[in-house]
Measured scan of single mutants.
Amino acid sequence: ENVVSAPMPGKVLRVLVRVGDRVRVGQGLLVLEAMKMENEIPSPRDGVVKRILVKEGEIDDTGQPLIELG
């Protein structure tokens, strides 16, 4: 899985990584606010952040691509 998608609709509060960062499975990639709760979205695998497809403050839909890993 190279693309991390939104598991729920919500607002992107914080992006915790930058392009080029090495990430490990379970590491937080970004924080979504949904139903007044903050949810940290973890990396599904080890890899390198290739692209960040959303910006802080954006509203996303379920299934929307958020981050691409390489």
Score class of each variant (00 low, 15 high):
Pro7Ala: 08
Lys55Asp: 09
Val23Leu: 03
Lys11Glu: 02
Glu40Arg: 08
Lys36Pro: 04
Arg51Ala: 12
Leu69Asp: 01
Asn39Val: 15
Lys36Arg: 12
Glu33Pro: 00
Met37Ile: 13
Gln27Trp: 05
Arg51Gly: 06
Ser5Glu: 08
Arg51Tyr: 08
Ala6Glu: 02
Leu13Ser: 05
Met37Asp: 06
Val23Asn: 00
Leu29Trp: 02
Lys50His: 10
Ser5Val: 15
Asp46Thr: 08
Leu30Asp: 00
Met37Arg: 12
Pro7Val: 07
Val31Thr: 06
Glu1His: 13
Ile52Pro: 01
Pro44Arg: 04
Val49Asp: 01
Leu29Tyr: 01
Val19Leu: 07
Asp21Ser: 08
Gln27Ile: 05
Glu1Pro: 13
Asp21His: 06
Met35Ser: 11
Ile67Ala: 03
Asp46Phe: 08
Ser5Gly: 09
Val49Gly: 01
Val15Ser: 00
Pro44Thr: 07
Gln64Val: 12
Ser43Met: 02
Val15His: 01
Leu69Met: 06
Leu30Thr: 00
Glu56Asp: 08
Gly28Ser: 12
Glu68Asn: 04
Met37Phe: 09
Val48Ser: 04
Gln27Pro: 01
Asn39Tyr: 15
Glu58Asn: 10
Val12Ala: 01
Glu56Cys: 09
Leu53Asn: 04
Arg18Val: 09
Lys11Ile: 10
Met35Arg: 10
Gln64Trp: 12
Arg24Tyr: 13
Pro9Phe: 09
Val17Ala: 02
Val54Gly: 03
Glu1Thr: 14
Gln27Asn: 03
Ser43Glu: 01
Met37His: 10
Glu40Pro: 07
Asp46Ala: 11
Glu68Gly: 03
Ile67Phe: 07
Val48Ile: 13
Val3Ala: 06
Ile59Gly: 05
Glu40Asn: 07
Arg24His: 12
Lys36Trp: 11
Glu68Gln: 08
Gly28Asn: 08
Leu53Met: 12
Arg24Val: 13
Val23Gln: 01
Pro7His: 08
Gly57Thr: 05
Gln64Met: 11
Arg22Met: 12
Pro9Val: 09
Val17Phe: 00
Arg45Glu: 05
Glu56Met: 10
Leu16His: 03
Val4Arg: 03
Val48Cys: 12
Asn39His: 15
Pro7Tyr: 07
Gly26Val: 04
Arg14Met: 06
Asp21Tyr: 06
Val3Lys: 06
Glu56Leu: 12
Leu29Arg: 00
Leu53Val: 05
Ser5Phe: 15
Glu33Gln: 11
Pro65Thr: 07
Leu69Asn: 01
Arg45Met: 14
Leu53Ser: 03
Asn39Ile: 15
Leu13Lys: 09
Pro44His: 08
Gly20Pro: 01
Gly70Arg: 12
Arg24Asp: 05
Ile52Cys: 03
Val49Phe: 00
Glu40Val: 15
Gly63Thr: 08
Glu40Gly: 04
Ile67Arg: 01
Pro42Leu: 14
Asn39Lys: 13
Leu66Ile: 07
Gly28Phe: 10
Ile41Thr: 02
Ile41Arg: 01
Leu32Gly: 00
Val25His: 10
Ile52Thr: 02
Ser5Gln: 11
Asp61Leu: 13
Val12Pro: 00
Ile41Ala: 01
Glu38His: 10
Leu66Trp: 06
Arg45Cys: 13
Pro9Asp: 06
Leu66Thr: 02
Glu1Cys: 15
Gly20Glu: 03
Asp21Ala: 07
Gly28Lys: 10
Pro44Ser: 05
Val17Ile: 07
Glu40Thr: 15
Met37Thr: 11
Met37Leu: 11
Lys50Gly: 05
Gly47Leu: 04
Ile52Met: 03
Val25Thr: 12
Val49Trp: 00
Arg51Thr: 09
Asp60Gln: 15
Ile67Met: 11
Glu68Leu: 14
Val17Met: 01
Val17Glu: 00
Leu32Glu: 00
Val19His: 04
Val17Asn: 00
Ile52Gln: 01
Leu29Lys: 00
Gln64Gly: 09
Ala34Arg: 09
Glu38Gly: 05
Asp60Cys: 15
Ile52Leu: 06
Leu30Glu: 00
Asn2Pro: 06
Gln27Ala: 05
Arg45Gly: 05
Glu40Asp: 05
Asn2Trp: 15
Leu32Pro: 00
Pro42Ser: 11
Ile67Leu: 10
Ser43Pro: 02
Thr62Tyr: 13
Glu38Asn: 08
Gly47Cys: 06
Gly63Glu: 06
Lys50Pro: 01
Glu58Thr: 10
Ser5His: 14
Val12Trp: 01
Ser43Ile: 03
Asp46Pro: 07
Pro65Met: 08
Ser5Cys: 15
Pro44Cys: 06
Glu38Ser: 09
Val4Ser: 03
Val3Gln: 07
Pro9Thr: 10
Ile52His: 01
Glu1Ala: 13
Glu33Thr: 07
Arg14Trp: 04
Gly28Val: 15
Ile59Ala: 08
Ile41His: 02
Asp61Thr: 13
Leu30Ile: 13
Ala34His: 15
Ser5Arg: 15
Pro42Phe: 12
Arg18Thr: 09
Gly70Met: 14
Gly26Trp: 06
Ile59Val: 12
Val49Tyr: 00
Asp61Ile: 14
Val31Asn: 01
Ile41Trp: 03
Glu58Gln: 12
Pro9Cys: 11
Gly28Glu: 03
Val15Tyr: 07
Lys36Val: 06
Gly63Ile: 05
Lys36Thr: 11
Gly57Trp: 06
Lys36Glu: 14
Pro42Cys: 14
Lys50Gln: 10
Ile41Cys: 06
Leu30Phe: 08
Ser43His: 01
Asp61Tyr: 15
Ile52Arg: 02
Gln64Tyr: 10
Val49Met: 01
Pro44Asp: 05
Gly10Lys: 02
Pro65Cys: 07
Val12Ile: 13
Lys11Trp: 07
Gly20Met: 06
Asp60Pro: 15
Lys50Ser: 10
Leu66Gln: 03
Leu32Val: 09
Val49Asn: 01
Ile41Met: 04
Asp46Cys: 11
Pro9Met: 11
Ala34Trp: 15
Asp21Glu: 13
Val4Asp: 02
Lys55Thr: 13
Val15Thr: 03
Ile52Glu: 01
Val3Cys: 13
Pro42Asn: 10
Ala34Cys: 14
Val25Lys: 15
Leu69Val: 08
Asp21Lys: 03
Leu32Cys: 06
Glu68Arg: 06
Leu53Gln: 02
Ser43Cys: 09
Val49Thr: 02
Val31Glu: 00
Val3Gly: 05
Val31Ile: 13
Asp21Ile: 09
Gly10Gln: 03
Glu58Pro: 11
Gly63Gln: 07
Met35Pro: 03
Ser5Asn: 11
Val12Gly: 00
Gly63Ser: 08
Gly57Asn: 07
Met37Ala: 10
Arg45Ser: 10
Val54Pro: 02
Leu16Glu: 00
Leu13Met: 07
Arg24Asn: 09
Asp61Gln: 14
Met35Lys: 11
Glu68Trp: 12
Pro9His: 10
Gly63Phe: 07
Arg45Trp: 13
Gly20Val: 02
Pro44Trp: 05
Met35Gly: 13
Gln27Val: 05
Ile41Leu: 08
Gly26Arg: 04
Val3His: 08
Val25Glu: 12
Asp46Ser: 10
Glu58Val: 11
Gly47Arg: 02
Gly47Ala: 10
Gly63Arg: 07
Glu56Ile: 14
Leu53Ile: 08
Asn39Cys: 15
Leu69Pro: 01
Leu29Asp: 00
Lys11Arg: 13
Glu56Thr: 10
Asn39Glu: 10
Arg22Lys: 12
Ile59Asn: 09
Gln64Pro: 03
Glu68Ala: 08
Glu40Leu: 15
Glu38Trp: 09
Gly26Ala: 04
Glu33Asn: 04
Lys55Arg: 12
Val3Phe: 14
Gln27Asp: 09
Lys36Phe: 13
Lys55Pro: 07
Arg24Cys: 12
Lys11Met: 09
Pro42Glu: 08
Val19Pro: 08
Val19Gln: 07
Met37Val: 13
Ala6Arg: 04
Val54Gln: 03
Leu30Gln: 00
Glu58Trp: 14
Arg22Pro: 09
Ala34Ile: 14
Gly10Glu: 00
Val48Thr: 10
Asn2Thr: 15
Asp61Trp: 14
Val23Thr: 03
Ile67Tyr: 02
Ile52Asn: 00
Pro42Trp: 08
Thr62Ile: 14
Met8Ile: 09
Pro7Ser: 08
Val15Ile: 15
Arg51Leu: 09
Gly10Cys: 11
Lys55Met: 12
Val17Lys: 00
Gly26Pro: 01
Arg14Cys: 09
Gly20Tyr: 05
Gln27Met: 07
Lys36Ser: 14
Val3Asn: 06
Gly26Phe: 06
Pro65Asp: 06
Asp46Trp: 08
Val3Pro: 04
Ser43Gln: 01
Val54Ile: 11
Ser43Trp: 04
Lys55Gln: 12
Asn2Val: 14
Val15Asn: 00
Leu29Asn: 00
Ile41Phe: 03
Ile59Phe: 14
Val25Ser: 10
Val4Met: 04
Glu56Val: 14
Leu16Thr: 02
Pro7Lys: 08
Glu56Arg: 09
Asp60Glu: 15
Pro65Ser: 07
Val49Ile: 12
Ile41Gly: 02
Lys11His: 05
Leu53Arg: 04
Leu29Pro: 01
Val48Gly: 02
Ser43Gly: 02
Val15Glu: 00
Glu1Tyr: 13
Gly47Asp: 03
Pro44Ile: 04
Lys50Glu: 08
Gly26Thr: 03
Pro65Tyr: 06
Gly70Leu: 13
Ile67Lys: 03
Leu32Ile: 14
Leu69Gln: 02
Leu66Met: 11
Glu40Gln: 10
Leu32Met: 13
Glu56Gly: 08
Arg18Met: 10
Gly10Met: 06
Arg18Ala: 11
Gln27Ser: 05
Leu32Tyr: 15
Pro42Asp: 05
Gly10Trp: 04
Val54Leu: 06
Arg51His: 08
Pro65Phe: 07
Ala6Met: 09
Met8Asp: 00
Leu66Tyr: 04
Gly26Ser: 04
Gly70Asn: 11
Leu32His: 05
Asp21Arg: 03
Asp61Lys: 14
Val4His: 02
Glu38Arg: 10
Leu13Asp: 00
Arg24Ser: 11
Arg14Val: 06
Met8Phe: 15
Val31Ser: 02
Ile59Glu: 11
Val15Lys: 00
Ser43Asn: 02
Val3Tyr: 14
Leu53Thr: 03
Gln64Lys: 11
Gly10His: 04
Arg24Glu: 09
Gly26Glu: 02
Gly47Phe: 04
Gly47Gln: 02
